[in-house]
Nucleic acid binder design. Structure first.
Ligand SMILES: [Mn+2]
Ligand SMILES: [Mn+2]
Ligand SMILES: [Zn+2]
Ligand SMILES: [Zn+2]
Lengths: 139, 139
DNA sequence: GGCAATCATGAGAACGATTCTCGTTATCAC
DNA sequence: GTGATAACGAGAATCGTTCTCATGATTGCC
C-alpha cells in the first residue's frame, strides 16, 4: 500500500524506528481528512482487526508531534486532536460541528510578533492560531 | 475594598447572582497579574481563610468565561488557565517559564480570516491566537 | 548466525483535572 | 417573612492521558 511506504519514510526521516504499530498509526492518520483523537484512531484500527494497545497509540502520536511530523490541535478542552499536515508552518480553520479542517497557508504574523515581543523583552518561541467556524454542511 | 465592588458590578452586568463565593473568586482573579488555574485560585482563597468549595470555583470560572467576563487560556495541555482582561478583543503573549502575560491589543486578523473563510464556505465564529515565549527573567 | 543490551509494546493501574450528585443553605420576588 | 428557586460543598465519579512492569522485538557486536 502506498501510504504504508510513505509512513515508513517519514518515520525513518526523524530517526524513529518504523515498528509495525507506529507505521499503522501514522498510515491511518495520513488517511484521515480531518483531525482525530488518539482514542478515535485506536478504535478505527481495532475495528479493522489491528492488534495494538491504546498506550502505543498515545505514545506514537505524542512522539510524532514532538518530532514535528504531525500536528496536535487543542480546540476541545481536555483532549488533543492530531492531524497529518504539510511541512511548512501554517494554521487551521476548524468546523465546530464536524471537525472538518481547512489549512491556512500564508501566515504573516511573524514580523508583527517579532516586533511586539522585543518591545516587551520577550523572545518568541512559537505561536498558535486556531480559527473556529461552521462549514457549509453544518450551518 | 475596591475590587470587591467592581466584581459585584461585573456580575450584575451579566445577570449572575453576586453570591459571596462568586464575588470572592472574581475579586481574587482581578488581583492576579497573570493567569491562574481554578485550583491555584482555590488554594489562594483557602490560604487566606475563605471557606468555599473547589467545585464552586470551577463553576464560577466556567460561568464567567461563558459570559465573556474573563478569558480562558489553554496553553497547558489538560488544564485551563483563567484571566481577567479588558473588554476588547485581543490576544496573549505568555511566558512558558512563569506564565507572565502580555496583552496584544491590535489584532488585525479579521479581514484576512473573513476573506479566507468565505473562500472555503465557512462562517468564522472566532479565532484564538496564543503566542508563547520567554520573558527577560526566565531567559 | 547467536547473544546480550536496548528499545518498544500491552494490559491494567494510577493520575489529575474537571464534572456530577445530592443533601443543605443562601438568595430573590412577593 | 415565606415559598420557590438557585447556589453551594463534600466527596464520588468521569475521562483523557500517563505510568508500571512484565513480555516481546530489534540492533550492534562477536
Ligand atoms: Mn478535532
Ligand atoms: Mn497559565
Ligand atoms: Zn462542519
Ligand atoms: Zn517568565
Amino acid at each position: 500500500m502506498e501510504q504504508r511506504t510513505l509512513a515508513v519514510g517519514l518515520l525513518e526521516g526523524v530517526h524513529v524506528r518504523p515498528t509495525r504499530q507506529r507505521v499503522r498509526v501514522l498510515a491511518e492518520l495520513m488517511g484521515e481528512r480531518d483531525d482525530v483523537t488518539a482514542q478515535e484512531l485506536h478504535e478505527r484500527l481495532r475495528g479493522r482487526g489491528e492488534r495494538l494497545g491504546l498506550a502505543t497509540v498515545y505514545r506514537t502520536l505524542g512522539l510524532l508531534a514532538d518530532e514535528g511530523v504531525i500536528d496536535a490541535l487543542s480546540h476541545r478542552p481536555g483532549e488533543l486532536c492530531y492531524r497529518w499536515c504539510g511541512e511548512e508552518h501554517h494554521h487551521h480553520l476548524v468546523c465546530s460541528g464536524c471537525h472538518r479542517v481547512v489549512e491556512l497557508l500564508d501566515c504573516e504574523l511573524d514580523p508583527w510578533l517579532e516586533r511586539i515581543s522585543r518591545a516587551h523583552d520577550f523572545v518568541t518561541t512559537g505561536h498558535r492560531l486556531e480559527v473556529s467556524g461552521l462549514c457549509g454542511d453544518c450551518r
